[in-house]
Design a protein around this nucleic acid. Structure first.
Length: 353
DNA sequence: GAATCGTGGAG
DNA sequence: TCTCCAAGATT
């Protein structure tokens, strides 16, 4: 590929982006941008972390709630852990929320409350990896950094007919993406490639007929675009089983438990339960437990079948595990989805409406 | 390099 | 119902 080829391709894409850029809460509208308004690094960072492995549709409302509640990185850095984890509940990959807080506090403590302006500096912060560092550097600081996410991998694999399967092809796809990154408007270009992948060069049924890169696309020329990028087979998901105990005190308090900081659902609110290895476990308190059925939930790498037991307990109940959270303080929306499913089932039995 | 880590929507 | 998978980072 010659330099003139690369600049021709990026110009075509930027022209398409100027006409088709998607409207999103974390983007600066074209008119404001033309007037010199710069994207707020805090909002760019927050959106990019939320968008890791997560769809735009799922992120929208979370982004609004976070920015309404914590308008600046200093506000977020000063927040309580439980409030941030609760606000993140339902979005998944909870290590992101823990790293989000750690990052906000590092920015305040080590960088005077201002995000580093370079990709290299951003990479030192928790939760900011190669993709996110490039995205913030390019979008908020006009650095000619190259973003390589799933969209970019797919677009490059098709445009250049890369047949090596992922993840092995990652390095080659990154190199191709770097060759196309322009010195001018690198932030717009990064978002343009991702918009292209999200709306036209989609995993299935790509809309090649309206693609700005239809002519130069080598996969399209060969008619193999739908089969790219190739991916290695993934292992089957094992099924794991466990028990969860949900107790409601007569004053309406629920027996909840903060999960360990590390590992699955780390740092999130939940209910006491057994291990998820199929064996039994000790009940969190002595009570007349009632088996009310099971909850099924699929995680990234295994399926879980959780047997739900509930109990009504008296005011003097003494729990071995967890603590009773008063009815007024308990918000079901603070729970990760699998716990929310179990809670909804329990409540339908304990407090039928 | 391979495993781990969530969820909801599309087809 | 089931499979795929989305703007990845960390260990």
């Amino acid at each position: 590929m010659r330099d003139s080829d690369a600049s021709g391709l990026s110009d075509v894409l930027l022209d398409w982006y100027d006409r088709h850029a998607r409207v999103m809460p974390w983007r600066v509208p074209p008119e404001e941008k033309k007037a010199g308004v710069k994207p707020d690094p805090y909002r760019v960072w927050l959106s990019e972390v939320m968008l890791q492995q997560t769809t735009v549709a799922a992120v929208r409302d979370y982004f609004r709630r976070f920015t309404d509640r914590w308008p600046t990185v200093a506000n977020l850095a000063a927040a309580e852990d439980a409030d941030v984890m609760g606000e993140w509940a339902g979005l998944g990959y909870y290590a992101r929320a823990r790293n989000l807080l750690a990052c906000a506090r590092a920015v305040v403590r080590d960088h005077g409350g201002v995000f580093p302006a370079t990709r290299e500096g951003l990479l030192t912060l928790p939760g900011i990896g190669p993709y996110t560092a490039s995205a913030i550097a390019a979008i908020a600081h006009d650095e000619a950094a190259t973003v390589v996410d799933g969209n970019v991998e797919r677009v490059m694999a098709r445009l250049w007919l890369v047949e090596e399967p992922l993840p092995g092809a990652k390095a080659a796809l990154t190199r191709l993406a770097e060759l196309l990154t322009p010195a001018a408007r690198p932030g717009d270009y990064a978002q343009a490639v991702m918009d292209l992948g999200a709306t036209i060069c989609t995993p299935r049924n790509p809309a090649c007929g309206i693609c700005p890169w239809r002519d130069p696309c080598r996969a399209r020329a060969e008619g193999v675009q739908a089969s790219l990028p190739r991916k290695l087979e993934k292992a089957a998901k094992p099924v794991r089983q466990g028990v969860i105990w949900i107790a409601r005190r007569e004053d309406g308090a629920w027996l909840v438990e903060r999960r360990p900081e590390r590992g699955l659902l780390g740092g999130m609110l939940g209910f006491p339960g057994s291990d998820w290895d199929g064996g039994g476990g000790a009940e969190p308190l002595a009570a007349d437990w009632q088996d009310i059925g099971e909850v099924r939930h699929t995680f990234t790498h295994f399926q879980l079948i959780l047997r739900c037991c509930v109990a009504r307990v008296g005011s003097g109940a003494d729990a071995v595990r967890g603590n009773f959270q008063p009815h007024a303080e308990f918000r079901p929306s603070d729970l990760p989805t699998v716990m929310r499913k179990a809670f909804d089932l329990a409540e339908s039995v304990l407090s039928p409406s």
